[in-house]
Design a protein around this nucleic acid. Structure first.
Lengths: 229, 229
DNA sequence: GCAGAGAATTGAACATGTTCAACACGAGAA
DNA sequence: TTCTCGTGTTGAACATGTTCAATTCTCTGC
């Protein structure tokens, strides 16, 4: 799907070293948090020289990206299963987002490094070009979740639904990352309430009475996202 | 209002130097952007030694905060005028937000340093403790804008309106900062459309038919913001 | 086994935010 | 005038992300 690393097959040993550095990074990140973790710490933990870390990863940020990509790969199959197992939009949304929470749980704090940047020009921003491939795949999950659902949105809004659902998910994850309540209970409540509200809103959106709102919303989305491709 | 700098009256010369450094910073920020601007550049531009910059500002971020605080001070009176001049929620919102755009225009790019962080633990995040004073004052503007308006929201939602309007404003500003269209036209369109949509939604919210939505929304807001103080 | 090319690895060096001990200077006391 | 004290100022030094020339390792063709 996405273009493979431009690197050659990469010898077995090299792949091993790369993995070791990545694992060491996650270990150090979990211990000290992203900011406080030093590239020297990471190299030491992996048992390599500082330069080796940079031979395998372009930057400290790139390590987080590698983690993100690997996670996305792992989540893909889990999401496929969820989509196959459920039919309604509600169960599918619940399923997809739950997969994210479950998969990111062990590195929840580290995820802050990924969601901390609203700046779409920052490589680690969820809106950046660098994260576009992952984002697009993610959005396609939501497209498939919406596909067979009975939701009938006005045609000038429907095309944006997957992107809006993705945005909703990102908001939830952002809240989750910085949710200090025990076991992130507040996020769970937020999830339940907003999901219900979302579905209720989607059903309300079918009422023709709201035509003026539909028109406004459609124009607005066109402004933000550009014409639907 | 806010606690004055803990520093003493500060000699005239000191105040002058501080201002000189702040102005030099803005100059360099405008030229090179926040990231690429070096503290050494700034010190050189201001004609002082590197250490002097740190004598007056705790950090590079703190310079942006100083700019933010100064801007907020300047905008305060402009917002007061707007509030005094207009009566409806629409004109007031339009007025307040326009003041922001006008005031920040010369340093629009620099504002990226302030809005780039979604992380509420980052000092420069609009959600951080460090920006709380400014945020609260800002929210109070919206409280006053809503005060005399004819909007009648359900009592479990009404207390959150000012904070929601502030959030809306922050979203607009974020979009504006990274809006690459000529003269930021897209932001203008977005502003118009979303404002109309917002007002329409507020009017719709008065329909008792939507009781279930009101309950959900109220619970949700309570989860996010805590009980209304 | 051996030469050489390319991959992997190393650590010193650099850039930049930040800290800090030392110094300069000006106003009041003696 | 000279001494003293505190504000203001300086630049060297440090921490850490990053670069890179040099070195070592590994495999391939002979």
């Amino acid at each position: 799907m996405t273009d493979q690393q431009k690197k050659q097959p990469a010898s077995k040993k090299a792949e091993e070293t790369r993995t070791r550095i990545l694992e060491a990074s996650l270990q150090v990140f979990r211990e000290r948090g992203f900011e406080r973790a030093t590239m020297r710490d990471i190299a030491a933990e992996a048992g390599v020289a500082l330069g080796a870390a940079y031979y395998y990863f372009e930057s400290k940020d790139a390590i987080v990206m590698a983690f993100y990509e690997r996670s996305q790969g792992e989540m893909k199959t889990a999401v496929e299963e969820t989509l196959a197992r459920s039919r309604t939009l509600e169960t599918r949304l619940r399923g997809i987002i739950q997969v994210k929470f479950d998969c990111f749980e062990p590195n929840r704090k580290l995820l802050g490094a990924l969601s901390a940047h609203a700046d779409p020009e920052h490589p680690l921003s969820p809106f950046s070009r660098d994260t576009a491939a992952i984002r697009d795949q993610d959005i396609s999950f939501f497209a498939r979740a919406a596909e067979e659902s009975k939701v009938k949105l006005p045609p000038n809004i429907a095309p944006y639904l997957p992107r809006l659902l993705w945005l909703y998910q990102m908001g939830l994850i952002l809240f989750w990352v910085y949710d200090h309540s025990a076991e992130q209970r507040r996020t769970k409540i937020l999830f339940e309430k907003t999901l219900k509200m979302l579905l209720l809103t989607l059903r309300l959106a079918e009422i023709p009475l709201l035509r003026p709102l539909h028109r406004l919303a459609g124009d607005l989305l066109k402004t933000v996202y550009g014409d639907t491709p």
